[in-house]
Amino acid sequence: MDQQIWGVFMNVLELKNISKRYGAIQALDSVSLAIAPGEVVGLMGDNGAGKSTLVKVIAGNFAPTSGDILISDKKVAFNKPLDAQKAGIEVVYQDLAICNNLSAASNVFLGREPTRRIGPIKVVDYAFMRSKSAELFARLKSETRPRDLVHKMSGGQRQAVAIARTLLSDAKIVLMDEPTAAISVRQVAEVLNLIRQLSDQGIAVVLISHRMPDVFEVADKVVVLRRGELVADKKASQSSPEEITGLITGAIEHA
């Protein structure tokens, strides 16, 4: 992607003092974060640290109690996930929202099938679906074939299908929830490659993961949440797995 075009915006996503309260529980406490186009951000934290809450706020599942979300320097308010999707935010869910009984192409287009008219009726344009998804898989440098049924695929290929879905909508930011949690070592490498491909095309990726090596392998920036507070926001190259572990557990207060 042309850096000049992306250079117009400083940040593709900016969070300003985002707080989220559930009754007496402060799930997020004044979190501020900026993500540049094509940046890969590793979002880390222990269970219950607020990672999922933060992702759900960004994805429009629910509104923050206070604070602002800016997309490409414009303030936005999401009332439902579709609003976030329209603004260019896509989520790849942990348990992959794909249907095993359908082909890869059908899954890529699930919920937004292209149609063409034959007389008065609209029929699904299978040829376009196959050629377009083949193109998307090629962009991701994945060997997934559009006609293959998903239940015959490896975990890595399933991730490719789920990620291709995000390319279809010209996403600016892709949120990935534990994409490497339940797959083999070889497939992890495949998925990390997919993340690099997204980044190369100017798409920012927020990678939520427990797996330290995966995060340090691809992330430009590591962000740590602890008890709803953002305790670290630094370049991966200037940090280390040891430091991040300390930040997650609280052995190190701030970075």
Partner: peptide, 18 residues
Amino acid sequence: RHLCAVGKNEEAARFSGI
């Protein structure tokens, strides 16, 4: 298409905006 998706994995279908 949606019928097949809903039958196999209703949650995935819902997440896809069906």
